[in-house]
């Protein structure tokens, strides 16, 4: 089973890399967003954001937020689009005609998302470190890695859940963007949480994006004391993931829904 998942992963990841759209939306776009937001709102010495425990440079503030975006791009947006397309075009149905276990196909695809998410997170951390002098403290580094992995798996599950209710491959991209773009704005990804009105934050607090961004910020924040695990945020993200898994397990199908 594990060997089969790794086998599937090797080819999924290759296909991912060869797709220019995947490369742009999953890798280039988060980097672009980090550079743009950090340059527009950060830069000057007095440009800081108030967060728990003190203030940090605005450019530094954007690193964990955009990591959340990168995780969601890799584990959720890309996964919804590719799984929907593979199902609607009959690729999954053809695999169903072989002895490959469903779990291996799903695990192989999820592994691709996890590896990609780790890659984009590392890339963004590197950019933050080199250009904005933001470094991760060793004390909270394990928390950061755990948060990235929990977030990736949760959004993978949500991705499989959402893909299972989209009937048309052309609708996958607009639907994922329509869901995520507003959430990025109200969850502290594009705009610091401290400049958002309370009611909007209350709305955002229902959804997992806000909690993933918050958990990443906690693990990334140099003012954080202790190990940097944002327990409640992580639990909420994991709960969303579990709900997604529940829907995905009930609704996952190999066969095209649109015709």
């Amino acid at each position: 089973m594990i060997a089969m998942s790794v086998h599937q992963f090797r080819y999924d990841v290759r296909a991912f890399w060869r797709n220019p759209q995947s490369r742009f939306f999953t890798l280039a776009l988060p980097v672009l967003f980090l550079v743009i937001f950090a340059s527009v709102f950060g830069g000057g010495t007095d440009r800081t954001v108030k967060i728990a425990g003190g203030r940090i440079d605005t450019s530094v503030y954007y690193v964990p937020g955009i990591i959340a975006l990168g995780i969601i791009a890799a584990a959720f947006v890309n996964l919804v689009i590719s799984v929907t397309a593979q199902r609607e075009s009959g690729v999954l149905k053809r695999r169903r005609a072989t002895p490959v276990p469903a779990a291996a196909v799903i695990a192989g695809r999820s592994l691709t998302a996890v590896v990609t998410a780790l890659g984009i997170a590392a890339l963004l951390l590197g950019i933050g470190w080199v250009f904005y002098g933001a470094h991760v403290v060793a004390r909270t580094a394990p928390a950061l890695v755990v948060t990235i992995i929990v977030g990736t798996l949760a959004f993978c599950c949500l991705g499989f859940a959402l893909a299972s209710v989209i009937h048309d491959e052309d609708a996958a991209q607009p639907i994922t963007q329509a869901v995520m773009l507003p959430l990025y704005f109200i969850s502290g990804v594009f705009v610091p949480v401290s400049s958002l009105p309370h009611w909007l934050l209350n709305v955002a607090s229902v959804f997992p994006v806000r909690h993933l961004a918050a958990a990443l910020l906690t693990a990334y924040n140099p003012h954080t004391r202790g190990a940097g695990f944002a327990g409640v945020d992580l639990l909420i993200v994991a709960a969303w993931g579990a709900a997604g898994l529940f829907v995905a397990l009930r609704r996952f199908t190999w066969f095209p829904l649109g015709r």
Binding site: A15, R18, G90, R94
Partner: peptide, 14 residues
């Protein structure tokens, strides 16, 4: 058992 489906796209990117 081998199956050639009526319609099935190629594996993308391979």
């Amino acid at each position: 058992v081998g199956v050639v489906l009526q319609e099935s796209a190629v594996e993308p990117g391979l």
